[in-house]
């Protein structure tokens, strides 16, 4: 077994059950799963870095549209109120629910925005053949924020709000709603494209 341990660079351990596997070349677009517990070991999406960069750019545009235009409005007796993601946060804060306001701000605004910017900061330099020193820190921040970026859950919240208010007043949806749907789909696609291994390979090759 000491022979195996000395070739640590050619091995990979499953993150969920610790089983050691030999790394193998797999075709683009395939993935390797743990033989014992089935969790993902590694994958090689097609053109990971180029596509991550391009998709993240598109996400950024959609994020701006989704936040600058209202996603639904509410009119009752001639008075109209428009809803943005951030107005919800503000009203929770005014209603005295500091903690909840912070959580909604983090999960629906800050974490998605940071994730898009971090993906650009990670994929951008590698695409142009550079490996700046901040890459590992940026990746860890990205990974830490991933569970907290909840655009898809927020979108379902919008659906429920529409149904809840349906018999109270009319609730026409706005441009922001479509931007949110597109953002959700694109962010999922972007994160699936991003292969962290290309990041580490770029850093290794620069040393």
């Amino acid at each position: 077994m000491t022979g195996l341990a000395s070739q640590a660079h050619a091995l990979i351990a499953c993150q969920d059950c610790d089983l050691i596997h030999e790394k193998r070349a797999i075709p683009d677009g395939h993935k390797a799963n743990c033989a014992r517990c089935g969790s993902l070991l590694y994958c090689h999406p097609h053109n990971s870095i180029q596509r991550t960069f391009a998709l993240a750019m598109a996400c950024l545009v959609l994020f701006l549209v989704a936040n600058l235009s209202h996603f639904m409005s509410f009119s009752l007796h001639g008075r109209v109120q428009e809803a943005h993601i951030l107005t919800g946060v503000l009203e929770l804060y005014r209603g005295g629910l500091m903690g909840l306001a912070l959580l909604v701000f983090l999960t629906s605004f800050l974490a998605p925005l940071m994730n898009i910017l971090l993906l650009l900061a990670l994929a951008g330099p590698i695409y142009f053949g550079k490996a700046p020193r901040y890459l590992p820190v940026a990746f860890r921040l990205y990974e830490g924020l991933c569970p907290w970026a909840m655009v898809s859950v927020y979108l379902l919240g919008v659906f429920v709000a529409i149904v809840k208010l349906a018999d109270l007043a009319s609730t026409p949806i706005g441009l922001g709603f479509y931007a949110l749907i597109a953002l959700m789909l694109l962010m999922t696609a972007t994160q699936a494209r991003f292969d962290p291994e290309s990041l580490w390979k770029a850093i290794e090759s620069r040393r």
Binding site: S73, F74, V89, L100, Y154, G157, A161
Partner: peptide
């Protein structure tokens, strides 16, 4: 979190 997001939208609208 669905319920919490719905709540934030409702308080913003109504």
């Amino acid at each position: 979190m669905i319920d919490m997001f719905m709540l934030s939208i409702l308080v913003a609208l109504v």
